[in-house]
Design a protein around this nucleic acid. Structure first.
Lengths: 215, 215
DNA sequence: GTCTATACTGAGATAGAC
DNA sequence: GTCTATCTCAGTATAGAC
């Protein structure tokens, strides 16, 4: 990879993490990287594709680790369905470990999520892996109506993505902490898994499978 | 209120809901509203303050209804702490009813949340009310360590906000539904309350109150 | 008080020389 | 591969008509 391309990626990741995507101009990136404005469009095509490459190189190893953990669980369980906790742990832990090892990168990812840059980005890079976990979860809670199960998946995704960016937005020190990036630490991850597991294992709220679809 | 201001607000709300905030230009708004560009800055000051007024006129009635329901619950309970479900119901139901009655407006709110326009917006308009509900929740689950409780509040906020915008992002028809706005219907709301209540009532995951603070 | 016309600054994107 | 010059369009600011 060319030196120019490398410098662009590194500076862009840092600035996106610090300021967000929209607030970071290409001119700011090229100034700090010491390259020309047109070099970005030559190497990446557009500002969005530059971000796409950044997300892709982060998502890759996380997805590999997630699948590896899930397959290890499935191998151990044989034909039996898995429990909820280990599934969520296999999904969340690789992300949390990446967040601990590369806090800058994970802050960037969280920022992009918070800025609403899905589905074009997070969907593309995380959905294929996510679908395998959804299938495993479905076997873990077979008694929940399908519609309610899919909604619970949405609740989980919302809680997870929010947890990666925000911290104590309604807490006692929310004001002075506003704008601070939350570190997605291991104890925080454990609490998230406990919270979501309880939610998934709750008795069904919908009484009839044939509820009218909501969208 | 002047006719011009009214038209700007209505068109802006619709376009923000359809396209998001960043993707909607002021020139697009004035073209559809049939007014002059400078009228926006005369009446609102800036694009962000225009959005602020839109959010404020939606949040007001919802907050009033939320507080009314909470105070009714507290009056019925006397000195006893409330249960988790009724608290969450009092918080979530007014928002869901607003979403059913004004789907366009709620879609706009959800979009703004998804675009990461907090804390300047949602925080300002929803946080004061939210803090009263957090206090009530704290009394409802007194045995959870403070740190874990605050994280659970974050998980709840993430699940709620996500549920208002997205639907079945990992579901079987996610591709063709991508970009569709989810309607935050009543059964969906009931499922959310059941999911979150179970999470809040889960046994504590942190063993020690003196866990190192994560931010 | 309201609104219009117009100009200013900075953004992302692009064509073509080298 | 890289850079210069330029294009289009965004949000914003101001002067002045009614």
């Amino acid at each position: 990879m060319s030196e120019t391309k490398h410098k662009i990626l590194d500076v862009a990741e840092r600035l996106f993490a610090e300021q967000g995507f929209a607030a970071t101009s290409l001119r700011h990136i090229i100034a700090e990287a010491g390259v020309n404005l047109a070099a970005i469009h030559y190497h990446f095509g557009s500002k969005e594709e530059l971000l796409d490459e950044l997300v892709g190189r982060l998502a890759g190893p996380v997805n590999v680790e997630r699948i590896a953990r899930l397959e290890r669980l499935e191998a151990e369980a044989g034909e039996a369905p898995l429990a909820v906790e280990p599934i969520l742990d296999a999904f969340i832990r690789p992300g949390a470990e990446m967040a601990c090892k590369h806090p800058e990168s994970s802050r960037m990812l969280g920022r992009m999520y918070a800025e609403g840059l899905m589905p074009t980005l997070v969907d593309r890079h995380f959905k294929p892996t996510g679908k395998r976990f959804v299938a495993a979860l479905r076997r873990a809670v077979p008694d929940i109506p399908e519609q309610e199960f899919l909604w619970r998946v949405d609740f989980m995704i919302g809680a997870m993505s929010h947890a990666m960016v925000h911290s104590q937005v309604l807490g006692p020190h929310a004001e002075e902490d506003a704008g601070h990036a939350a570190r997605f630490t291991v104890p925080r991850m454990s609490c998230l898994i406990a919270f979501l597991s309880a939610g998934f294992r709750a008795p069904a709220s919908l009484v009839d499978e044939k509820v009218e679809v909501s969208q």
